[in-house]
């Protein structure tokens, strides 16, 4: 359905020196710098997939989406969406996609929400009966009825986001691009939005490309995960395989009576002997060990620590996407992968 082949997008930015002097200087000489927002990425997306597209701020997620929607033109490479080249056939492509940018809205600010829906119906040329059916479905799904007559500017962020999602789906698009649709929302609204996305995907086989910083969005929705870092896709695969790719890590948390420097040293040495990349840190009386369970067994650590001191409590946890994302955003994962 979507093919992206060796796509690169450069942005030229002009650097100015700081301060008043720099500003004046900037009028005459500008330093040019080319930034590769997206660097030679390739992937394919099939109908009905829900892609969780993650990466730190500025990693290139939004740029990729903007190219797929036809708004931005790739500097090089090819994109086809349902057989069309989006930036050359922007209008035709737009008929078959729905887009939500969490930070912006496509609703008419000063008009009652209902009016926006009517206007969209006309713009997208939706037949009357199809429109009615679709609107009923979306109003129910996203619980919009209560505020449908209110001007958009009076809506809360959660209401607005639900309305935006409905607006993006009114014309029954095949593909839904969601760029941070849950940004700034409370847990209940997030739940509602997630449920809606799932329902749309199951009932209408809508293909969803979702970017988010909320890993529970990904955990609940994504059938496939793509991770982009500094413009390069460093992971593309299933949720389950992600642990294999980024090391089968676990975290052991131990609460210890009289945690001493020497003990910390000894544990650290013991762990490093078997797993060079294990991390031992401590906070007050809590010892936190992150390790790869293929190299280091939990029993070994526990046995060793318990022979040295009194353990008051312990917790064992598998690494989840959240942890991976944290390491990723901190920039630590790259060398592990390469």
């Amino acid at each position: 359905m979507i093919q992206v082949k060796n796509v690169t997008k450069d942005f030229t930015i002009y650097k100015k020196d700081s301060g008043f002097k720099g500003a004046v200087k900037g009028l005459f000489v500008r330093k040019k710098e080319i930034i590769k927002a997206v660097n030679d990425i390739s992937f394919e997306i099939k109908k009905g997939e829900i892609i969780g597209y993650i990466g730190a701020n500025g990693a290139g997620k939004s740029t990729t989406i903007k190219m797929m929607t036809g708004v931005l033109t790739p500097s090089s490479g090819e994109i086809t969406v349902s057989g069309l080249i989006p930036h050359e056939n922007r209008i035709e492509n737009a008929k078959h996609i729905g887009v939500v940018f969490g930070q912006r809205t496509q609703l008419w600010w000063d008009l009652p929400l209902e009016e926006t829906f009517t206007i969209l119906k006309e713009i997208y040329n939706v037949p009357d009966d199809a429109y009615k059916e679709r609107l009923d479905y979306l109003v129910n799904l996203l619980d919009i009825q209560a505020f449908i007559k209110q001007p958009v500017r009076t809506l809360s962020l959660g209401q607005r986001m639900r309305a935006d999602l409905a607006a993006a789906m009114l014309h029954s698009p095949d593909i839904l691009y969601l760029d941070e649709p849950t940004i700034g929302l409370d847990v209940l609204v997030k739940e509602k939005i997630r449920f809606a996305i799932k329902d749309l995907n199951e009932k209408y086989k809508v293909t969803v490309i979702l970017t988010t910083h909320d890993m529970s969005d990904i955990q609940e929705l994504a059938t496939r995960i793509m991770i982009i870092e500094k413009g390069v896709i460093i992971y593309d695969g299933s949720k389950e395989d992600i642990n294999k790719r980024f090391g089968n890590n676990r975290m052991l948390e131990l609460k210890i009576e009289n945690l001493s420097e020497t003990l910390l040293q000894e544990v650290s040495v013991m762990c490093h002997k078997k797993d060079k990349k294990s991390i031992v840190i401590h906070e007050d009386v809590v010892l936190r060990i992150t390790f790869n369970q293929d190299r280091l067994a939990v029993a070994d650590i526990l046995g060793f620590v318990m022979s040295q001191c009194k353990v008051l409590d312990f917790k064992l946890r598998d690494q989840d996407i959240e942890d991976i994302a944290k390491r990723l955003y901190a920039g630590g994962i790259h060398e592990e992968v390469v």
């Binding site: 903007k66 929607t69 036809g70 708004v71 922007r90 209008i91 035709e92 737009a94 008929k95 996609i97 887009v99 940018f101 912006r104 809205t105 496509q106 713009i123 997208y124």
Partner: peptide, 13 residues
Amino acid sequence: SGNIIMNLIKPIN
């Protein structure tokens, strides 16, 4: 403001 994007994603000139 970048809001032009909200119009460019619609099938309109």
